[in-house]
Amino acid sequence: MEPIVQYKDIHKSFGDTHVLKGIDLDISPSEKIAIIGPSGSGKTTIIRLLMTLEEPTKGDIYVAGKNLWKMEKGGKSVPAKEKHLAEVRKDIGMVFQHFNLFPHKTILDNCAMPLIKVKKMSKKEAQEQSKQMLDRVGLGDKYDAYPSNLSGGQKQRVAMARALVMKPKIMLFDEVTSALDPELVGEVLEVIRDLAENDEMAMVLVTHEMDFALEIADRVLFLDEGVIAESGSADEVINTSDNPRLQDFLRRFRD
């Protein structure tokens, strides 16, 4: 199957820090990928590049065959303009560690506004679809609440509904449970599990919830010092890899 996303020799530096040192990665439609690895290994940067929140220092990313960061102009390849980025990233959605809900809008408006503005949907249609999605994540009774009145777990579920209702083909999860109190992690993972099992979209999870990641992912990537050090099914990565740094990393999680 044609990959929906391709990373080709992606490098990223922040100042003198070389965070990603040559990432090659194909993501198939509907594939569920978990990225694990020590902090500072560049896990988050990988998905931020795809969301166009950071620009790669070197290399190309293709989304559905289109070069994300470059466009054709007069037969030449030039850095992408805002319009090109918008066109290519329209199938990508993202959920953030700190939710990033819009505090001045109700839960319903948080979900409906992008549908109205970006998808040019009627207000009625946008609210209808938003309500359905909020129901799905278990927040059917909170339409008119503001984010500040919700718990962390509820906020994160709203953020997921807001991203999902845009119907992305690729959904990125950036440590979505890291900012939550331990007792609220479960309700968020439950939603992700539901998506992983029942939804066709590709998913990339950057996470510290090791057991969860291994359980739902089709493929696990172990990122270490800016390169993909191991890649395979959860079973392969956990049980058959003899990469000492991976073993060390997993041991620290088991303790």
């Binding site: 918008a86 959605g93 993202m94 953030f96 990033n100 970006v118 953020a159 845009m166």
Partner: peptide
């Protein structure tokens, strides 16, 4: 993070500012 959420939802620069 507000701007980043706006980008992730594919709002244009103007829409991010305005909304």
């Amino acid at each position: 993070g507000q701007t980043e959420a706006g980008i992730a939802l594919n709002l244009s620069r103007f829409q991010r500012m305005r909304e």
